[in-house]
Amino acid sequence: MQKQHRYTDRPDCAKRLFIEMWKNKEIYLLIVPAIVWYIVLCYFPMGGLSLAFKNYMGRIGIWGSEWIGFKNFEAVFASPLFFNAFWMTIYMNIVMLAICFPAPIVLALMLNELRLNKYKKALQTIFTFPNFLSWIIIASIIKNLLSTDGALNGFLAALNMNQVSILGEKQLFRPLIYLTRIWKSAGWSSIIYLATISGIDQSQYEAAEIDGANRWQRLRFITLPSLMGTVSIMFILEIGGMMSGHFDQIYNLQNDIVAQEAETLALYIYRITFERTPDYGFSTAVSMFCSVINAILMITANTVSRRLGGGGLIGDVNNGH
């Protein structure tokens, strides 16, 4: 930065900027491929959202199709199927925030309190494993276990009990989604919390112990408050993907009987676009609705969390500079 002074006495800002840029020309050359990637594969689709205001013509493509204003959105908001999917998305996400979101926190606290360290490591390896498999694999395994001719029913038959058909039961489908979600990813998410816990200053615990705080009090007044920053970051991430998430899981676990029970917006978009003659304008309007709500939710959660002193995701990354 020292060298800049040579140029500061000149009023010619543009020239100074150009010289600075010229000095860094290698950096720009280095990042050109990455920038091209972002433009072509992230920003083109974002621009493609303009299709929500157009009548898509396959032959002339997105950019040539004619503008029709808000007609697609009018059609979307007049569709009862859209609203069903919308409410289902909100409903399932609220339940997931209540059940699936706290699960890894509880798991992390439990693992942290476990005294047997060798065993704890083995447990962590087991708990994190399912997270690294695709939902296709997980769904197949769950079907093997729970289907009518699967292991569970074999076990029940051996005990002379009645068969249960968990996968074909409408009321059980959503609970199955919640439970398998915890089963697959709680272990991995708990690692994030455990990492934070291990970063807590040990002298706090020692001081509390000297002051006579018992285990529960130490957990309540030291560990939990120290976790709040991480909790809020995870919460923001969870909220930010609310409208478009969980497609993999529901899509792979569902069957014809229960398909209607958990049709969230992500599945709705897939179904109207790829399983019948598509109206791309309509689908894009729904897509755009999801993206906008996601962004609003994420930014709101981020702002609120920062106001409350919990630390935000976006702000933190910026502070990293």
Binding site: C42, L49, Y280, N294, H321
Partner: peptide, 21 residues
């Protein structure tokens, strides 16, 4: 540049525009 890549974490086109792209 930083804002340019962070935007993609908050906002995305979604399935349909990505497919058409």
């Amino acid at each position: 540049l930083f804002v340019f890549i962070m935007i993609t974490m908050v906002f995305g086109g979604g399935t349909v525009p990505a497919f058409l792209n």
